[in-house]
């Protein structure tokens, strides 16, 4: 069976700087795949290439058998790839519910149907009670969940999460881990996540990739990767938070 997502020899340069250096990996349908690495390693750049924000200089990205590198973000989303932003960007002037309705309208034309679906998602993400709040009035953990809700409402096959745990307290992190597990298992959404919080990565990920200066330095199952000497010196020893 072909993988859901195949990234092959992808590279991105910003003027002289090599931000992503010939990265290859595959994500199987149903998996939770984590990308870790120190700040500036090229993780967000890699995500932006998958999500269509940036076109890679080299390599190919294949999603469900279709080449998607260089397509526009909206086209990629319509194919079934949804993403959250590292710096959250909900629609500030809209209510929590309307934020999610906009996502739900991607594959639903009927407003009432979209609204019902949005409410279902809000309920699973503990945001139902706050559905009439303006998004700008939410706390950071709520905003992070709102971004997740909005992305989920587009019915993705693959969800790209850029540091959704960052800035959360341990109990909030545990709750997010539960939510993501549910999304993966019950909604059948494959997840590709960038994460610094190693506790969450170890709890969630089936596979992981370590980036360092844009290049992949380790790949595999989490328990194998964390034993890898290169990973420990370049990243886990210094910065990781368990």
């Amino acid at each position: 069976m072909s993988p859901l997502l195949a990234v092959a020899d992808v590279g991105k340069r910003f003027r002289g700087l090599v931000a992503v250096d010939r990265v290859s990996f595959t994500v199987e349908a149903g998996d939770i795949f984590a990308v870790i690495g120190p700040n500036g390693a090229g993780k967000t750049t890699l995500f932006n290439m998958i999500a269509g924000v940036l076109a890679p200089n080299d390599g190919t990205i294949t999603f469900r058998g279709e080449r998607i590198e260089g397509r526009t973000p909206d086209a990629v989303c319509r194919l079934g790839v949804a993403r959250t932003f590292q710096i959250v960007r909900p629609f500030p002037g809209l209510t929590v519910e309307d934020n999610v309705v906009i996502g739900a309208l991607l594959h639903r034309t009927d407003m009432a149907v979209a609204r019902r679906y949005a409410r279902d998602i809000l309920a699973t993400l503990d945001l139902f009670e706050k559905r009439d709040f303006r998004a700008s009035a939410l706390t950071l953990p709520d905003r992070k969940r709102l971004e997740l809700a909005r992305a989920l409402a587009t019915d993705p096959k693959l969800l790209l999460l850029d540091e959704v745990m960052a800035g959360l307290r341990p109990t909030e992190t545990d709750r997010m881990v539960d939510i993501l597990r549910g999304v993966n298992r019950d909604m059948g959404v494959t997840i590709l996540l960038i994460e610094h919080v190693m506790r969450a990565v170890m709890a969630l990920a089936g596979h992981m990739l370590v980036l360092h200066h844009g290049a992949p330095i380790a790949q595999g199952r989490p328990e194998e990767v964390v034993r890898d000497a290169k990973v420990i010196t370049s990243y886990l020893g210094a910065e990781a938070t368990f």
């Binding site: 999500a51 909206d74 989303c77 629609f91 809209l94 996502g103």
Partner: peptide
Amino acid sequence: ARSRLGYQWIAIREDETAARALGIDV
């Protein structure tokens, strides 16, 4: 204002990048 197109417009008005990421052909 309460149609799908209206919601797409509002999304674009609020944040074009986020609108695009939600599949809207801006």
